[in-house]
Amino acid sequence: MKHVIPKTYKEALEHLSEGTYKVLAGGTDLMVKNRSWSETPARFKQDMLYIHNLDELRYVEDKGDHLAIGALTDYETLLRHEAVPKVLKDCLIEIAGPAIRKVGTLAGNIGNASPAADGVLLLYLLDAQLVIERKGARREALIDDVITGPGKTTLSNEEMIKEIRLPKSTFTKTQFLKVGGRKADAISKVAFAGAVRIEDGIVKDLRMAIGAVNVTVVRLREVEKLHTGETISAVQDSIVSIKNAYVPHIKPIDDQRSNRVYRKRVAFNMIEDFIMNMHIQD
């Protein structure tokens, strides 16, 4: 097996084009998954590209209509950057602890594609566009179209995420609510992110994303659209039908961290809590 530290992003794409490599960014998922006995090397099953040092992919840039985040930007840097939306920061501060956040990346969170990933939940909420490249080609895709299931993405072996774009939007209220086993350093049992923009009592933009209740993040754009343009009270009066719309999509599992009954209940509580309080400013 080959292990390579590419010196440049270009070189990284060159290696990737061979189709046998896996990229390691912060390594906080990969090193756990491929853990071996202590004092022996990690048990990777394929060729590895150590891209952690590609500083050229470490940036946060305000592009006017969107925020461009280089794929290797770590969570701690994002937390400190003034242009990063508050709701994303509210989420990031609840990911792991500082030492993981210093190396962990949104791109890695996407690549790992865990249904319980917190960063991914926020990328759904914020309509993130991913800039995906391979040698000689580039595509852009909405986060929803990249993640297809637990650990599954549409990324090919030759591709990697170069940049994450967050379209600018303003909200009058946002919420991130995560239930882990404890208050830090915990994997989500269930998580919720919500955002709304209310102008003159009218709901102009409504978004809700729910994590760890299905194979991918649940975000129902049709339901959100249905209620856009309504008054606050009209939306709140529809709480039962809104919740009903989510019923077929909230299908959590039992595991070592929680159980399906609880996850389901809390997911609906979170939806209701957000809708019923969306007019109350933070």
């Binding site: 086993g181 404890r182 208050k183 830090a184 915990a186």
Partner: peptide, 8 residues
């Protein structure tokens, strides 16, 4: 998975 209290 076995949760002990953290500083928070």
């Amino acid at each position: 998975d076995y949760i002990i209290p953290t500083s928070v």
